[in-house]
Structures are given as structure tokens and as C-alpha cells.
Amino acid sequence: MNGSNQFIGLKVVLFTLIVIGIFTYYANSIPQLESRPPQELSLSKENLTPEALVQAGKDIFYGKGTCALCHAIGEKGPRAPDLAGIGARAATREPGKSAKEYLIESLINPTAYVVEGYPPIMPAVNKPPISLNPTEILAVVAFLESLGGTVDVKPSDIPSETSATPTSVAPAAPASLKLPGNPEAGKAVAEVCVQCHIIPGVGKPRRPRAPDLSAIGAIATPDYIIESILDPDAKVVAGYPAGLMPKDFGEKLKAQEFMDLVAFLMTLKGGSPESSEPGKGAQPAEGQKKEGVQETKASSLPVPEAKPAETEKKEGAETQGSKNPTTGSEQNKSQ
């Protein structure tokens, strides 16, 4: 023993080196993957073809959007349903909603409808950690529409100001602008609107006759909302008749009331108003309410324009279940 324990330190060191060497060698010999941060998509409206948009959407679907982690196309995924044929089915899901509008809503407010058999696990893609910008969301919509449907995302839908650089520190939110107007005061003004529109936290009509405004702040720009109040028939959401909204509504409001209303509508992101968790939707911060200033995204998605020709058909169409086609399995029934 005495002879052998002379070099015991050396033996143990050698043994340690050999064992660690084997582990290191093995770890280096298996497939080497690196996880790079996703790149922001920035598309030029010029020369933008639907094909290019669909391709960009496909890249996002399998890349930055991380959609393919759960959704499969052509086979039923373990966590989320098959998206084959979603382009055709999306247009028939909700009366009055086009495929584009429905898909946008599904992407930014995915837990609104949860499909039986699947947990409500899909995150809002416009919020961290995915944080797709409006252009990227439209590209994904174009890609999803191409799965059995008609791509109707147009270059004009692409907002000109897309946040191209990721934010570096908390909060990881897109660039923002300050809107004059007190959302809290705007909420009181919005009480009139619930005669026809669904507005969370304010009320809902017995029979909704106008589009649901639950997520209007996430899918529309302030300009769009202002225009919709001042000139309601300039753009009519698919499935709803023109002339329903009073044309003089905007004129009856005082300037402050008008801005308060816009500021309030921009707070409606489709999430739970009580939530304070990141990525789960929230009310405007306390400080903002007091200052009467509301922060909102500089570049939001445009609400798709109405297609009067399709309106009649969709009003007559029966809803095949109020499931979200991007998170639900009921789509299989319509196949």
C-alpha cells in the first residue's frame, strides 16, 4: 500500500482528467446546435408580392414565431391542432369576420376561444417573448391563409413604421407614442358604444350588431380608430352593414371626450384587464391614468377592410363552433 500511495495524488488527477476528457469529447461529438436571437422582419412595400409575404410568414412560423413548436401542418400535434386547411376554415368561423381578421385576432388573443382537449397554452404573439411586429403578424396571416384559402393580405396593409430593432432592456415592448387623452374618462364616454359593440369592462349589448372591440387596441392604429369614429363608413368590417354607426357621433363629442375615447379604446388589447403579468395583457399603468396620457404601440395592425360582396354570405353562414382555429381542434370537423 505504501508503495502505491506515493503517487496517489497523480493517479487521482489523471483519473479526473480522463473522466472529464471523455465527457467533453462525447458532448462535442453529438449534433451541435446554437440558438440565435430571431431577426426582425422588415418588408418593403415596393415589389412586395403575396408569394414573398407568404414565404416570410412561413419563415416566421417555423422560426421567430415558434408556432411549429406546437402546431403541425398535415398532422395533429400533441399540444395544438393541425393547421392544414386553416386558410379556408378561418373565414367561416365567426360570422362577420374575414379570415384575415379572424386569424389576426387568434394570434393576438389566442385564449379567447380554447379548444376542447387542448390546454390554453398559446401565447399572444405580439407580446414578449415572441414579440412579432405588425408586419410579421400579417406575414404569418398570409402564410396561414395560403393553407387552403386565399391570401388577401395586401402590401397596403403593411404598416410603414415597423419597429425594426429589438428593445434592449425591460420592458421589451415596441416603440411607443404618447396619446393625449385619459383612458379612464374615455371609459365613461364608451358607455354609449355598448349599445352595439362589446367592450370589456364597460358592457355588451344583448345582440351585438357591431364588431367586438375587445382587442381593438392591439389590431388597430389610433388613426384608424379616429377615422372610424369620424367617418364610420370609410372602412366597414366584413360582415357588418354600412350606415349602422351614427355618422355624427364624433361631432357630438367634445374634443377632450373624443381623445379620451380613443385613448381608452387603445387600451383594449384583448387580455384580462386585471392581469399584471408580462405577456398576459394589462390595464394602463397607474401613473399613466393619472397623467391622462396613454402609451400605445406606434405601429399596430390595420383592421381589414370590409368586403361587401362577401357580407351577405357570411351573415347567413352558421358558426361551426366558437373555437379558435389556431388553437383548437374543431377545425377537423369542418374538413
Binding site: 465527457f23 462525447y26 446546435l33 417573448p129 434592449s168 425591460a170 421589451a172 408580462p278
Partner: peptide
């Protein structure tokens, strides 16, 4: 690529997760 997941993004030049070999 997040310092704090979903809240604070890593924007340093090393904002990527290295390979398993490098980690080993």
C-alpha cells in the same frame, strides 16, 4: 436571448445560446 425571460432582452454581442460542445 433574454436576461429576464419575456421582459428584458439580451442585446449584447453574446445574446445567443452556445452549442452543447462549447458548453461542455
Amino acid at each position: 436571448h433574454w436576461h429576464v425571460y419575456g421582459v428584458m432582452r439580451d442585446t449584447s454581442p453574446e445574446a445567443f445560446s452556445p452549442t452543447l460542445g462549447f458548453a461542455a
